[in-house]
Design a protein around this nucleic acid. Structure first.
Lengths: 233, 233
DNA sequence: CGGATGTTTGATGCCGGTCAACGAACGTGG
DNA sequence: CCACGTTCGTTGACCGGCATCAAACATCCG
């Protein structure tokens, strides 16, 4: 349970379901919410778990993934401040694994409570719908990247996306923080972690990137227009 | 414009937006609809076109795809009887290319007219939402297949999916019709058409398939459990 | 029949997967 | 504080799967 006064300081207040609610209405939503904190690698939920609630990320990053029968996994998305994890469900079960990539705080909503708010506020319902649409389009883009691009181009596409996401949230994109491991990145891009590492090297050699550290880089040339690695695959 | 009496014979009546409407309510929806016919390879709409309407497929098959800057394309989905193309939009523009794979007939709805019906009927709104959810999950599955599976496993996964889709619609799944070209299949699976052809051969050699013709096969062994080609990639 | 289109099959090469070794960063315990 | 183990990222060597280039074949249709 959260006091609505807290929301005024919440960095995710300006996004999706909270955005359309003014100070008077916010308590309706907030009374169904609780702040949670998750440590690195902790699972927020697993595929097949009863879909207890939705987690709106207020800080940090989580991954959504599908495990494969042979132990591999496909990370389908990285979610950041303002995004909501767990609103996708089949029956009343979660359909993805959700794992904290960094230390993460969430504002977690009871499903039924949120449904009530959605039913009462057109703006909130529209926000939910828009999130779903955005996710479909994003999945399609990602699918196209994995299906059609070579390794280096996939990485470039990812860096460009990440940079934009940081920009939307007012986070610094230069240097660009890469909080996820090489393995996470590989599972996201449909590659092995060694290949991800080599692709970083190629971007550095082509002077598209400068490495500050293994988890921070500076993009020195516009990736989208440089067509870097676009000849691959 | 369609007479509601026609709907009684429509094979797609039992799906999504038409399903929740009884004979009395159907005309509300139908007055915004028009039957269209599309020939093989014809574009229903292109990415970036003003999103004029939604096309509910009553017979045939269409592909949804994203063109890449270098001329390649990623087919993100094949839609069949009962599915709706064109409800995904960014602003008021279509976000995919939609092309007829086979001769196709659609029942096409004016967007504003449909919106009015959606606003008035909870069942129709729920149907739209469910379609969106299903698409997200399907895209995630497809992404995982492309990202994690080898060529032959991807093909097997596709055949299994197609078989199920036919089953849902009461279409014969044995023999299994493959109306799309090898190129379409390649664009869907993130492969080249030669590789698709070779993967078919491998499935035949492993006695998972029997080829009736190049566009009709018989699945002789359960693909899902055979783990065919699952060792690849 | 001849041309266009689509599928199969072969030969070859390269991208990325696999296996392995090494180094950097970090935490723990002596 | 340093020795040690663990985890993660990098780099190298090698190889296999898929792309590429090419040719033969099948099917359809004017």
């Amino acid at each position: 349970m959260v006091g609505a006064w807290r929301c005024m300081a919440c960095p995710a207040k300006a996004w999706n379901i909270c955005r359309p609610l003014d100070e008077d209405r916010l308590p309706e939503l907030v009374k169904h919410a609780a702040v949670h904190h998750w440590s690195r690698r902790q699972m927020l939920f697993r595929i097949g778990d009863p879909a207890a609630g939705l987690h709106k990320i207020t800080a940090g990053m989580v991954s959504l993934s599908k495990p494969m029968p042979d132990g591999r996994r496909q990370i389908v998305d990285f979610l950041m401040a303002g995004d909501i994890a767990g609103f996708m469900q089949s029956g009343d079960r979660y359909v993805f694994d959700c794992q904290a990539v960094t230390e993460t705080t969430t504002c977690s909503f009871d499903r039924n409570g949120l449904s009530a708010v959605v039913a009462r506020h057109q703006g909130v319902a529209a926000a939910m719908e828009k999130m779903m649409e955005d996710r479909v389009m994003r999945f399609a883009d990602h699918m196209a990247a994995i299906g059609q691009m070579g390794a280096t181009a996939r990485l470039a596409y990812f860096l460009e996306w990440l940079s934009k996401e940081y920009g939307k949230r007012g986070l610094p994109a230069e240097p660009l923080a890469l909080p996820m491991s090489r393995t996470d990145l590989a599972d996201f891009l449909g590659l092995r972690f060694e290949t991800v590492s080599r692709s970083f090297k190629e971007l550095k050699d082509k002077h598209v990137l400068e490495a500050v550290s293994s988890e921070t880089v500076v993009v020195t040339r516009s990736i989208g227009t440089s067509r870097s690695g676009a000849h691959l695959n």
